[in-house]
């Protein structure tokens, strides 16, 4: 149970609530017993099918009933119908699950059933157009999942479903349009780490397929991130993404440039934890990976230790981590 407030009821309110719940409970148990009995006796009638609809509206988490419904599709409903009728039947279940998702956006069983429906969309409408039904269904799905992400931009069920839809579409949109989608989501809210995550996946694909020039694209990403950092330097989403970018373009000049730029931000926001955390991270990278290009290594080491001491003060819950990093730097430095 998440986010349901504990309420103190008056005696009268408690009695009224009990009565209401009692009536609901009686109706629920009667329906549930009926459906389970029909399932056990392998009832594949239309009436049984309608009863599962009613029960699932009351309790969409009852996965055994979704299973029963799927058995009815496979064993009884599909074999009696033409592809066009099967397509319509599944489209009705997609409407039902969309309606349920609007009320219960995080119920696994509803998302799961939606996917099952997609996997059973028949070929057609004609031999010349075997992907016709699928194409129009998948296009609708992309629309549905965007609605779900408009309502809650962090819903991981919806993001997972979105990736699934894009990966299985008969005629997928160009991957660059997904990059544009993440840009829109990020610009609407820089704190949307789900969108940054998706962006990292899309970019990786675009670099691997050569659709985007890796070096040029990383440059552009640094610009996007810089805007976000200046907008809210306390937002960890942006800094985690920045660390990923550095990992992909880890060369001395870039590190030096980012260090200078973050230092400027820190000068404006002298208590910014994430500026300090990132400076330590990137200065350590310079020391570890680019030692040959370093003029004054000692200055970098001293600056890391100074930043870590300050982090310890402004972020006491994580002080042990800062201490361990400082110990690591000191012992690494002594060894050389």
């Amino acid at each position: 149970m998440h986010g349901v407030k504990r309420v103190q009821y008056s005696q009268a309110a408690l009695e009224a609530k009990k009565q209401r719940d009692h009536d609901k409970l009686k109706a629920y148990l009667a329906l549930s017993d009926d459906v389970i009995a029909r399932k056990k006796s392998h009832d594949m009638s239309n009436e049984a099918f309608e009863l599962t609809t009613r029960l699932l509206r009351m309790n969409p988490e009852f996965y055994t009933v979704w299973n029963y419904r799927r058995d009815m599709f496979i064993e009884s409903l599909f074999p009696q119908r033409s592809p066009s009728e099967v397509n319509e039947l599944l489209s009705d279940d997609l409407s039902l699950t969309f309606e349920l998702l609007k009320q219960h956006p995080k119920v696994y069983g509803i998302w799961n059933h939606r996917r099952w429906c997609l996997e059973h969309i028949p070929d057609g409408p004609s031999p010349d157009d075997v992907n016709g039904y699928r194409n129009s269904t998948w296009n609708k799905e992309l629309f549905v999942v965007e609605k779900m992400l408009d309502a809650d931009a962090r819903n991981f069920h919806a993001w997972n479903y979105r990736r699934y839809i894009l990966a299985t579409m008969p005629f997928p949109p160009p991957p660059k349009s997904e990059l544009a989608y993440t840009t829109r989501k990020i610009e609407a809210n820089f704190s949307n780490f789900s969108a940054w995550h998706q962006r990292s996946k899309v970019l990786t694909t675009l670099w691997e397929t050569g659709e985007l020039d890796r070096v040029k694209s990383i440059e552009e990403e640094f610009e996007l991130v810089r805007n976000a950092m200046y907008t809210d330097p306390d937002d960890q989403s942006v800094w985690i993404y920045h660390a990923w970018l550095i990992g992909n373009g880890n060369y001395a000049a870039r590190l030096q440039f980012e260090i200078t730029s973050i230092q400027e931000l820190l000068d404006e926001q002298p208590d910014s934890k994430w500026c300090m955390e990132s400076l330590v991270r990137y200065k350590r990278l310079l020391i570890e990976k680019h030692a040959e290009n370093l003029g004054d290594k000692k200055a970098l080491v001293d600056s890391c230790l100074e930043l870590l001491a300050k982090l310890r003060d402004i972020d006491p819950p994580r002080r042990r981590r800062y201490d361990e990093i400082a110990e690591g730097i000191r012992s690494g430095n002594e060894m050389q």
């Binding site: 991981f156 990736r163 990292s200 996946k201 990923w244």
Partner: peptide, 16 residues
Amino acid sequence: KNFDGGFGAVIGAESH
């Protein structure tokens, strides 16, 4: 495994 060191529910999913 994701770039933040975490893991998601399926391949491609956000760390949780």
